[in-house]
């Protein structure tokens, strides 16, 4: 097993992890501030990917596709926040699960209605296509490297937004005591819509960016949504730092486990059996990681003292 393979897979894991972070950050922000579990977050990811694919097909520009993804997802976010989500903030979790599950059905089938069942394709822009040579002579796709960069920039931007701006101060205050900041004259309902739109835009961005390396299709959001849930359970619900660490852990575990677990098992087993057992075990690895974190710290690595 060569060092080059290892570095490539670590980079793949990082790329997967930062994209997961874009999803998980929105989820954890929405849960932290509004106390809402949003199953429809994966639908916003899908909306972003479809908007990007449609815009790229119409204009041929990847930059415009990203703009379309961000605005379509944010718009869809505002729309469902005002029409549905707003009524659920004080509702029990069960109602939130149901209503957002209903939204998934509406979004998925609605998209199938408009775009059909066949996957769409979104091309990597010319400027970012092709491999790049890293120090040490490793060839790595430039686009994937760019994704890691985008993810890190967004993470830094979110940190700056929540820790260093007035809006971030209101968001953090909203987490701790919503009555108090309403009493201090902050329009809480507008703040909630804004936070929801921000989370939606991040999901849409992730959908568009990942859509260029996978196909854009109905139902693409839910597997990512569930991984994002695993991520924020590991990181601690409500914590953006937790979401970041959790996303990297999940991304690396999933990628490295899928490659190396079958290899490691060949030491103890026949190659064919090792490949099969390895693949089956690797698919369970992140859930085992989640279970282990829960045994150790039930509220996640950076979660509060009490489960929410």
């Amino acid at each position: 097993m060569s060092a080059i393979l290892l570095i490539e897979q670590v980079l793949n894991g990082l790329q997967f992890g930062v994209m997961l972070f874009l999803m998980a950050a929105g989820l954890t922000l929405i849960f932290g501030v509004m106390g809402l579990i949003n199953l429809a977050h994966g639908s916003l990811y899908m909306v972003g990917a479809f908007a990007a694919a449609a815009a790229a097909a119409a204009t041929g520009s990847f930059a415009l596709a990203l703009v379309a993804a961000l605005s379509a997802a944010a718009l869809a976010g505002v729309l469902i926040e005002v029409a549905v989500i707003r009524r659920l903030y004080d509702a029990p979790h069960l109602d939130q699960v149901l209503a957002t599950f209903a939204l998934i059905l509406v979004f998925s089938e609605g998209t199938r209605w408009v775009f059909g069942s066949f996957p769409l394709y979104l091309d990597i822009p010319d400027a970012l296509s092709g491999p790049v040579t890293l120090p040490g002579g490793i060839q790595y796709p430039l686009y994937r490297l760019a994704l890691i960069g985008v993810g890190l920039v967004v993470a830094a931007g979110l940190w700056w937004l929540t820790q260093r701006t007035r809006l971030g101060m209101q968001i953090r205050a909203g987490k701790d005591d919503r009555e108090m900041i309403a009493a201090l004259g902050v329009d809480i309902s507008k703040l909630y819509t804004l936070v929801f739109a921000l989370g939606a835009a991040l999901a849409g961005l992730a959908g568009a960016l990942v859509g260029a390396i996978q196909s854009v299709q109905v139902g693409m959001g839910e597997p990512v949504l569930i991984l994002a849930f695993v991520t924020i359970v590991i990181g601690g619900i409500g914590s953006i730092k937790g979401a970041f660490i959790g996303a990297l852990l999940v991304g690396l575990t999933d990628t490295l486990g899928g490659i190396f677990l079958p290899l490691i098992l060949t030491v103890a087993m026949a190659p064919e059996a090792a490949a099969q057992t390895g693949a089956a075990l690797a698919s369970m690895l992140i859930y085992i990681l989640m279970g282990a974190v829960l045994v150790w710290k039930p509220t996640g690595l950076f979660g509060g003292a009490r489960p929410a």
Partner: peptide, 29 residues
């Protein structure tokens, strides 16, 4: 495992374990 926590953690953890079986079944040829 999932009753170590409650509320929204419980929802996400049960969802994740369900998905674990799903992927296991897919990859168990």
């Amino acid at each position: 495992l999932s009753l170590r926590t409650g509320g929204v953690y419980f929802i996400m953890i049960t969802l994740a374990f369900g998905q674990m079986f799903y992927y296991f079944a897919i990859s168990w040829s």
